[in-house]
Computed example of a mutant assay.
Amino acid sequence: MAGRRDKVQSIRGSRIVVAIVIGVLVGCVFAFLFPHGFFSSNPPIQNRRTIKSNYQSGSSCESPERVNMLKSDIASLTDRNVELKKQVRKLTEKLRLAEQGKDHAQKQVMVLGDQHKVGPMGTVKGLRTNPTVIPDESVNPRLAKILEEVAVGKELIVALANSNVKSMLEVWFTNIKKAGIINYLVVALDDPIAEFCKTNDVPVYKRDPDVGIDSIARTGVYLRNPFDYLYRDSDVESMTDGHNNMTAYGYNDVFDEPSMGWARYAHTMRIWVYNSGFFYIRPTIPSIELLDRVADRLSKEKAWDQAVFNEELFFPSHPGYTGLHASKRTMDYYLFMNSKVLFKTVRRDDKLKKLKPVIIHVNYHPDKLPRMQAIVEYHVNGKQDALDAFPDGSEW
């Protein structure tokens, strides 16, 4: 029995050896016939050569078409690049404005938040500036497009003009160009002025004239860029009709009534009115409310717009009336100069007449055009006696 088992095991061992040998031989055969394997992604050399040859032949036939396609792609990418640059500029401007308002936003949070700390005595500061509003371009898309092209940092100078002030308007925009100011716009109240501006390459917006706007004559002479001299810490910054520190910036005026005996003296705080011919407004709710109030009153009553401007800006709340809550700043009257300061004081002072104002507004004199021209001769062309022939005031 033992010999039989040994024989069976010997036969099984021989079969295994034979199977291994056959497997090795089959493997060698397949290795020789299919050197790249059954599932190789690379075709045989002969096939690869055929494919390459066909591709080269096809590309030579299609090369003009491909060149045109590439040219079209390049042109499309160029246009896209220009558009992306515009978007980058817009985003950069938004980022700048966001950074500019960062400090203000932090102050707002401090003031409007739940916890209020006023700080030590002598260091208490209130929030001086209101947040700006978001523009609504849908109100006037045509104007919005013009403003986007003209404004710098969302700021620009606006002047209203009709044919009555054509000569003064020309002096105005000529000196604005000389001063290097590019962000300005003329609101034309009639077709001749609109055409006049277009002919002289002046940005213009044409609108229908309002009732009662017949004597627009508020153009001044620009000698420097006013945007370099603004504080931007108030809703309204305006030039003044005042001619010295007291009248321009305020003073304690004592009213005397002898019949009151012991209480005959009453103290009043006074300031000369703001000149509505030149003022800067931030795009805030209070400043827009100011313009809205002025426009509403002028549409309903016959009144002087400068008087209405000051009344709405300064009158406090009282029974039956809610005052405007707007912050105000009076401009430096030597930089933003009215014609009284110039002709009565500055031109007669050897030190003061060396100053170069930002703007001179001819508001105190009816002979506006010749005085504007004389101002240009003096400050721009250097003619030292250009102002001498004019009297301090008007001769009626």
Rank of each mutant, 00 (worst) to 15 (best):
P286T: 08
E65N: 13
N164K: 14
F343T: 09
S41H: 06
N252D: 14
L185T: 03
A217T: 14
W262S: 00
S317E: 01
P35C: 04
G323H: 12
F30Q: 04
W172I: 07
M121T: 08
E195G: 13
F315K: 05
R80L: 14
S234E: 13
H365D: 08
N252E: 09
Y334F: 13
D233Y: 10
E83N: 10
G220L: 03
A144P: 05
F38N: 05
D190I: 12
D208Q: 05
L160Y: 13
G119Y: 09
P357E: 04
P283F: 05
L290G: 05
V202H: 12
Y280D: 01
V111M: 07
C61W: 11
L185Y: 10
Y249R: 06
S299M: 03
P391Q: 06
P43A: 12
L313A: 04
R89Q: 06
H243G: 07
L127C: 09
N164H: 13
V221R: 00
N225Q: 11
F39N: 03
N140G: 05
L84T: 01
S259H: 03
Y334L: 08
D114T: 11
E195R: 05
F309L: 06
E148S: 06
S41T: 11
P43T: 01
S59G: 12
I157E: 07
K354E: 08
A374R: 01
K368F: 10
K300G: 00
I213D: 11
